[in-house]
Write a protein that binds this DNA or RNA. Structure first.
Length: 275
DNA sequence: ATGGCATATCCTATATGA
């Protein structure tokens, strides 16, 4: 079961690139961010033609998230991150696909910092940390996938020097991400590739893609119920090299179906009874 | 400190992104 996350930076403009990626890589689940369009503009028919059913939450001009699943519609769980009813930005979707809980997020960028946008980022992060604790303990396999707008360590960027004041590298930002990991979540790509510099984003400036001057900011976090099924993780870098590409490339995990079946909520109860 | 590029919309100017 291949679960991917891809910040498309405008689904209307990016549709040809998105369809080519889906056809070539055939992810079972795809979390999308930065749709940058209203609900009515979502290309439901084109995606269905490619074999994907979807749920989505759009917004004019900015933000917007979607969850795609090959062959059948994701079962919606919630359409907003709990904790602030006044928050109207479309940044969170949660659904079940084949017994796996999929959370798709687009965490606020936070620039410039300090300032109200950075405050909003940290407040949003606090809400995520609170909700993630509930998800972690649900007993179901859970994957929280998306654009976290966090460079976890200096190893996750080509060169931190010119980014030192950026919201993505701030100690407060990194501390929030670490608090998620401290709950037990595993950063799948870093877990399977501990010694490799891996990037998911290359900005459009200064030929950063040509120079492979990237950042790793798109992550897939797995709870304890999902971790035993983890058999692969990576980045579809070729997508970033295509014409008219998004500034992000898709990141993904591969979960073994058989091991997921063993992770269903009934299994731990049986183990407890036998000990 | 600014700008490099790309996307969107109240579109030839401005806000946002990371």
């Amino acid at each position: 079961m291949k679960i991917a996350t891809f910040n498309v930076n405008g689904i209307k403009t990016r549709l040809p690139n998105l369809l080519e990626w889906l056809e070539r890589e055939q992810p079972d689940v795809a979390c999308l961010q930065e749709l940058k369009g209203l609900d009515a503009a979502f290309p439901e028919d084109a995606l269905r033609g490619a074999g994907y059913e979807a749920i989505w939450k759009g917004q004019r001009s900015w933000n917007g998230v979607a969850i795609l699943a090959r062959g059948h519609k994701p079962v919606p769980i919630r359409r907003e991150l709990p904790g602030d009813p006044a928050d109207e930005q479309s940044r969170y979707l949660e659904a079940a696909v084949d017994g796996v809980v999929i959370a798709c997020l687009y965490l606020p960028n936070g620039n410039p910092q300090p300032g109200p946008k950075f405050d909003y980022k940290l407040a949003w992060f606090e809400r995520l940390i609170a909700h993630a604790a509930t998800l972690y303990a649900s007993g179901h396999p859970v994957v929280i996938a998306g654009d976290y707008n966090v460079v976890p360590t200096d190893f996750d960027i080509y060169n931190p020097r010119s980014w030192r004041k950026d919201a993505l590298l701030q100690p407060e930002t990194r501390a929030c991400y670490q608090r998620l990991l401290d709950q037990g979540w595993v950063d799948a790509i870093r877990h399977l590739h501990p010694d490799q510099a891996i990037f998911t984003f290359w900005d459009y400036f200064r030929q950063h893609w040509d120079r492979d001057a990237g950042l790793r900011i798109d992550h897939l976090l797995l709870n304890a119920a999902a971790q035993p099924a983890l058999v692969g993780a990576g980045v579809d870098r070729w997508v970033r090299g295509q014409a008219h590409a998004s500034d992000h490339a898709p990141a993904w995990v591969d979960l073994a179906g058989g091991r997921l079946a063993q992770a269903r909520p009934a299994a731990p109860a049986k183990r407890r009874r036998t000990t």
